[in-house]
Amino acid sequence: MTKNSSAPAIAVEDLWQVFGPNATAALRDARGAGSPQATAEALENKGLIPAVRDARFEVRSGELFVIMGLSGSGKSTLVRCISLLVTPTAGAVRIDGEDILQASEKRLIELRRHKLGMVFQHFGLFPHMSVADNVGFPLKMQGAGKAERRKRAMEVIELVGLEGREDAYPRELSGGQRQRVGIARSLAVNPDIWFLDEPFSALDPLIRRQLQDEFLHIQATLKKSIVFITHDITEALKLADRIAIMKDGEIVQIGTPEEIVLRPVNDYVAEFSKDVAKGRHARVESVMLRDLPTHMPDDPGLRIGMTLDTALAKCMSLYEPVPVRDGTGTVVGAVQPADLAAALQVDEG
């Protein structure tokens, strides 16, 4: 029960999830092969499925961490390992510094009751309970009384904008409304850590955008540590503080949205962002020089946090380096207008 306030909210080390008979022993043997790639290959040759391979990353407190990848790349499995819905075959998962693989069943239940919340792709609502009872269910597990449950449930139901539907049953709701219930339920106990497994994938684009905005709004007030899964790059770029890209069970790149867009480590990652308008997602900082050049004749008024599109529009006809200021107006760096244009054209190049 070590608790360490400076520790990251979630730390994943060396995590493997292998499906198939005698996975633990098979993994132990296969690791003799050396690199994770070789190990995975050895496992596959034996007919086992290495769904998560040697994953390692940290989620900082208050960070919105997105895991992205194609269908079948192991995203769900990874998040289900972290929430211990499946027991990882090897590795460690620390939540606030506590190794939860070593935790007792009792401790796990306690963690889930107070600290963890989860939203599911297909909602996972209890069909026999009303909206209010669904949302109040985690509180019931905590032992809260009926009135208290109802009160808190109404609060979160309001937060997700479902007031008035609290006595409806899941089958009477639309997809978007159902997912609001799922979100409300996962928030009922006010968890510190929030897992969302493709929460908006089953919804149509309009509702999806609306829920994303509301989600960002909720997160802005609640500031939780979040692991968010999606296979939609626009969604990832819109929401994420950092993104991890998965391929065949492996995390191939972790980085901020602009790093992913501007500096993909390989073609697989590049392929994802091919169709995104980079200028709208990458910011000036990604091409900013910290060493100030001596000669900066123009000042088109670039600011930290400005997107590349906006910045480029401001220095369309400029060729000399221009200064970038922070919120207070202090010059913190400089940008070559040519770099701006180049950054937007990595693909074509």
Partner: peptide
């Protein structure tokens, strides 16, 4: 029973008995 419903009960912090009888 859909596995997400089962998992939602787990993540709500139910004991095995609660999961079974309540969900």
């Amino acid at each position: 029973v859909e596995h997400e419903i089962r998992e939602a009960a787990v993540m709500s912090g139910g004991t095995r008995r609660q999961q079974l009888f309540l969900v």
